[in-house]
């Protein structure tokens, strides 16, 4: 079973709540995914349009909420966002994300490390979204992060495991759970991430933007389970040449 900080999770598929066509579809997809940890963002309320009640159905669904700091452009804003989230949701868990660049949403490593240190010191359970940088992941672990969340490819891009070689190094070195986040676009890619030994994956766009989000959520659930089982079973070694699986002698000639 996956353990992050003091919480155990049966499901290794975390999901986001963004980009769904309706709250009802989102809720049904999350239910179908069997995800137990679900991300939410925070926003200043527009008093003219009122409040869209996202929390009540999610709380009723029994999932644990993981607020993110999306929109923060530096460490100071991210710490502020985390404190807001703790007050709003009553959780000290935070997905730390600082991406000032609006085009590629690349996480800012320097600000992220600084914010992570501050938040860990303040008692938050910090899960930072970062580039697939093995050195940075070690540094984040050293300042007390409960997990690391390296990206597979740019957020929402569905490009899959572009960073695979580096994800392998991160997984090999990490002493905290590794959650592959961002860019996973197909169940086969989620399965691959799990086969590599990732502890979990976070998927949002690939489910939400599917023509059938609920079916896709089920597909991801099964892919993650399958990939994890394959990892635990142990993949065979990759070889350059052919190695026969059938006897090559004794059939035609005695």
């Amino acid at each position: 079973m996956l353990k992050i900080a003091d919480m155990e999770f049966e499901s290794r598929l975390f999901t986001g709540t963004g980009k769904f066509s309706s709250s009802q579809v989102m809720l049904e997809a999350i239910t179908a995914s069997k995800s137990q940890l679900v991300t939410v963002a925070m926003k200043r309320i527009d008093l003219k349009t009122g409040l869209d009640d996202l929390l009540t159905p999610l709380r009723q669904a029994g999932v644990r909420l993981l607020p993110n700091t999306s929109g923060a452009r530096n460490a100071k804003e991210a710490v502020f966002a985390a404190e807001l989230a703790r007050e709003m949701l009553g959780t000290s868990w935070i997905k730390l994300e600082i991406h000032p660049d609006p085009k590629y949403l690349m996480p800012d490593a320097i600000e992220t490390l600084e914010a992570a240190k501050t938040l860990c010191d303040k008692g938050f359970i910090v899960m930072p979204y970062v580039h697939a940088d093995p050195v940075l992941c070690r540094r984040l672990e050293e300042v007390g992060c409960a997990a690391v969340m390296p990206l597979a490819s740019p957020i929402g891009s569905n490009q899959g495991l572009v960073t695979e070689s580096f994800l392998k190094i991160i997984i090999e070195q990490a002493r905290v759970p590794v959650v592959i986040d961002a860019g996973i676009g197909a169940p086969s890619q989620a399965a691959r991430a799990m086969e590599l030994g990732a502890d979990a994956v976070l998927v949002n766009t690939a489910i939400a933007s599917s023509a059938s989000p609920i079916v896709m959520a089920e597909c991801f659930k099964e892919a993650v389970q399958c990939g994890r089982r394959a990892f635990e079973a142990g993949l065979g070694r990759v070889q350059t040449g052919a190695v026969h699986t059938s006897p090559l002698t004794g059939f035609l000639n005695t």
Partner: peptide
């Protein structure tokens, strides 16, 4: 300053106060 929920009943609004209200929204 973020104000803890348990103080909302006792703090009275003062002239020129600036309040900001935030809610949870869908996100990844």
């Amino acid at each position: 300053q973020v104000v803890p929920r348990n103080r909302w009943q006792t703090i009275l609004c003062q002239h020129e106060d600036k309040l900001e209200l935030f809610s949870a929204v869908a996100g990844g």
